[in-house]
């Protein structure tokens, strides 16, 4: 049995199509990531999987339970951490945890070992109101609350958004340990650099899964060589490269410009250096973000063609 199975999931709102016929399977014990920008449909997908929304078409199961029919079962076995902070700001850390434990009929003492690793970070502040915690501590508390009833599967919707880099690092390490204990974790994030933490990732963009594989395999999906050009005149460099017929998928990447190249390097390097003497050109290994930018550009073009 798969932990999660989705067939042709479609979700429409009044004037937006949030999900276009998604298909995927998540193994038990896997850490599976949905990577995509804001508005890709991640939250809609998570809400369907946690039985909070009904899909317009298609079906999905979580631990073998249908997300529409068996919503009661799903609510018992899954832990969910919504994207928005959803604890009570006027309740203290301890009171929030107690509340969620009682609502799920769980015993804090009995399940303390599940959250010890995480909760111990915030335990010194247990009398503090949740609204006064820092972003990272809020997320740790929310994770503790989502774990306290010993779920079989954990859904985390953008758990690291708005969290400082150190806390993000810590957070992912905690998730890694939870996974080792046998928990299936489904997580979403807009940060491409976090993708490597997952066993498998699905790149989601405008309601479509562009690619699904292990992070390494995803990185190898770029065909041709990927080059990076860095120079003082970033914008002119971008315009110039876009005008070259040998360069495809030219896009800005931080301070640099990344592009795919077909043909002879020497020739190309010379041509660029003629225009931009200070430019640093090198061939690079594609990152998840490169793949995403590549694929999403293709997808956008395809849509344009279709809409014609």
């Amino acid at each position: 049995m798969f932990a999660v199975e989705a067939h042709n999931l479609v979700k429409k709102y009044k004037d937006v199509q949030a999900l276009n016929s998604l298909n995927f399977k998540i193994e038990q014990g896997e850490m599976y990531g949905f990577i995509g920008p804001d508005g890709a449909g991640k939250t809609s997908l998570f809400r369907i999987l946690t039985s909070l929304l009904i899909p317009n078409k298609g079906s999905a199961t979580v631990m073998g339970h249908d997300v529409v029919k068996d919503y009661r079962e799903i609510r018992k076995i899954s832990g969910y951490m919504p994207g928005r902070f959803s604890l009570y700001p006027d309740l203290s850390v301890e009171e929030n945890l107690q509340f969620f434990a009682s609502v799920f009929k769980a015993d804090i003492q009995e399940n303390y070992h599940l959250i010890k690793d995480i909760y111990s970070h915030i335990e010194p502040f247990k009398k503090r109101r949740a609204g006064k915690l820092s972003g990272g501590m809020k997320q740790k508390l929310a994770l503790s609350c989502a774990l306290i009833h010993k779920p079989e599967i954990l859904f985390l919707d953008e758990p690291t958004t708005g969290v400082d880099p150190v806390s993000r690092q810590e957070f992912w390490e905690m998730l890694g340990r939870l996974q080792k204990d046998g928990l299936t974790i489904v997580v979403s994030t807009p940060y491409m650099d976090e993708a490597s933490r997952c066993d498998r990732i699905a790149m989601i963009y405008r309601g479509d899964i562009l690619a699904e594989d292990t992070p390494e395999a995803i990185c190898n999906m770029v065909d041709g060589e990927l080059w990076s050009a860095a120079g003082a005149q970033g914008y002119n460099l971008l315009i110039f490269l876009r005008s070259c017929s040998e360069c495809v998928n030219v896009y800005p990447f931080g301070q640099e410009v990344h592009f795919q190249f077909h043909g002879d390097h020497e020739n190309m390097q010379e041509k660029v250096r003629e225009q931009f003497p200070d430019v640093i050109l090198r061939e690079i290994r594609p990152s998840v973000e490169d793949v995403f930018l590549n694929l999403s550009a293709d997808a956008a073009k395809e849509k344009e063609v279709l809409n014609g």
Binding site: L52, P82, S86, L87, F104, K105
Partner: peptide, 13 residues
């Protein structure tokens, strides 16, 4: 409004 309903609804309540 605060989004806490989302957290309560996913509980077996």
């Amino acid at each position: 409004e605060n989004g806490t309903m989302e957290a309560i609804l996913v509980s077996p309540l």
